[in-house]
């Protein structure tokens, strides 16, 4: 009885204050995301303006130095490389992903679900393991070098691992699902009658694709590009395992500051720059793709 009484009182209270009810239900999420996601970001931003103390701590002295250090060509090079690699990954995946998404959208219903599932599946499996698989293939004594030598294409093993090319390959491999899914979603919604109309009016397949299909699937192209660019620019595992010390990206720089270099303020600044790049990419995307609907699309 006691419990029922309490329940009725609670319900009455909530009926009088509908907002409190919504608030109550959302509270656990607000708490968790607020305290364990947003607040740490604020701490990180603060850290990036503090001076480093000896042995890894910080001193409560304000400084711009952690940001001005990025003028150093060494760090600028890392920033530029991150941009270049992420941009190239996005372009490569557009080229690979569009035809795949198109073919999946054209498949009959039963096959479509299977094909889609096979694209999504790797997304949920470990990046670390999928990247490691490429180490088996690309290293000097790896599968690819073995095959090429066996077929007498090359005499000495090629250096494939620890290059920018290896990073590109790894990122394209890991983020392919991110490109195919949004592209598929927009191609699938495409109004076929428009394609037929273009054909009736004499458009060749090439021009029809360029002038009708591509503009109509713009939202998918933008969403896919965003979803690939963002994790690529902040990637850590792929450049760490496949790039090594010779081809560092921002992610590796951040890790280095929190690991061996023990310069947390500088690491925070690098991380903050990374976060800014990501947010800029999101805002640019929203600008081009048009607000809220676009955000739904990206999901």
């Amino acid at each position: 009885m006691e419990r029922i009484g309490l329940r009725i009182r609670l319900l009455k209270f909530f009926n009088r204050h509908p907002h409190t009810k919504a608030f109550g239900i959302l509270l656990p999420c607000m708490f968790w995301i607020g305290v364990f996601f947003l607040l740490p970001l604020v701490f990180m931003a603060t850290y990036s303006f503090l001076e480093r103390a000896l042995y890894g701590g910080v001193q409560l002295i304000f400084t711009w130095e952690n940001y001005t250090r990025f003028v150093d060509p060494l760090y600028l090079k890392i920033l530029l490389r991150s941009f270049r690699i992420s941009f190239l990954t996005t372009v490569i995946l557009l080229i690979i992903g569009y035809p795949m998404a198109y073919r999946i959208a054209m498949a009959d219903k039963r096959w479509r679900n299977i094909l889609l599932f096979l694209v999504v599946l790797p997304f949920w499996t470990s990046d670390l393991i999928r990247t490691y698989a490429w180490m088996l293939i690309l290293r000097d004594t790896g599968l690819l070098n073995f095959l090429l030598q066996y077929l007498h294409v090359i005499k000495k093993p090629l250096t494939l691992l620890y290059t920018e090319g290896a990073i590109l390959l790894g990122l394209a491999y890991v983020y392919l699902p991110f490109m195919v899914l949004p592209l598929y979603a927009s191609i699938e919604k495409l109004d076929r009658s428009l394609l037929e109309a273009a054909e009736d009016l004499g458009a060749t397949p090439f021009w029809r694709f360029l002038k009708v299909t591509v503009p109509l699937t713009k939202s998918g192209i933008l969403a896919g590009s965003l979803l690939v660019f963002i994790p690529s620019v902040g990637a850590f595992i792929v450049p760490d395992l496949l790039g090594g010390a010779k081809a560092m990206m921002i992610g590796n720089l951040v890790q280095l500051q929190f690991g061996p270099s023990r310069n947390w303020p500088f690491g925070s600044a690098a991380s903050f720059i990374l976060m800014t790049i990501v947010l800029l990419a999101v805002f640019t995307y929203l600008r081009f793709a048009g607000g809220k609907e676009a955000m739904e699309e990206a999901r």
Binding site: P40, L274, M275
Partner: peptide, 20 residues
Amino acid sequence: ILFLPIVTPEIVVGISLVIF
């Protein structure tokens, strides 16, 4: 705000939490 954790690079989430 709920969209943010999905787009934030994992490394940023990791180091901000460790600072926290």
